[in-house]
């Protein structure tokens, strides 16, 4: 699976309360999450996430286990999230909802430029560099390729 999108740069330790606040969890309406994603960090961000590749600092997605966090990013149009490290529950949730997460060090981010990646060949292209990353486990690759754990499960039956 390959993809490309415009870079949106975020800092380190972005927690799931910031990605989607607890006050928006009392609904199953995904459009609410898409509209409110990262609101507490910058209310104008949500509108810029369609077709975006997020390049964040370490420990992205720390905090609560809320799956609404990766769903909100995906629904807002985020194509992939790249960070040096992720909080493990977020990482697992992202794969389960079909949002590619790429654990890569040293990916430059200016904001707005194009970033490309290949999940099959494990590289990210940014700022004129091709940066390799550690591939996902075979099981995680299968789940992601299926579009998430629900479709993966349905295909098994």
């Amino acid at each position: 699976m390959n993809g490309r999108g415009h870079a949106v740069c975020l800092g380190a330790d972005i927690d799931t309360d910031v990605i989607i606040a607890g006050r928006y969890l009392r609904t199953k309406d995904r459009s609410v999450w898409a509209a409110r994603v990262l609101e507490d960090l910058d209310p104008s961000l949500a509108a810029r996430l369609q077709g975006a590749v997020i390049v964040a600092g370490s420990n992205f997605g720390c905090g609560s286990s809320r799956e609404q966090a990766p769903v909100a990013l995906r629904e807002a149009g985020v194509i992939a999230v790249i960070a040096p490290s992720f909080a493990r529950i977020f990482f697992r949730n992202a794969i389960n909802v079909g949002l590619p997460v790429i654990e890569a060090e040293g990916v430059p981010c200016a904001g707005g430029e194009e970033i490309a990646f290949s999940l099959d060949e494990h590289w990210v292209e940014a700022g004129g560099m091709r940066i390799p990353f550690r591939p996902l486990s075979p099981k995680m690759q299968e789940i992601l390729a299926a579009g998430g754990l629900v479709s993966f499960w349905r295909a098994r039956e």
Binding site: S64, S65, E67, N96, G148
Partner: peptide, 26 residues
Amino acid sequence: GADSHSCTMGAFGAFATGVGATDMAA
């Protein structure tokens, strides 16, 4: 547990960890 603080049960010498909702459904 489908909650991040599921690690609490490690106090008993269990392997306890949190997952998200779809993992729980599986």
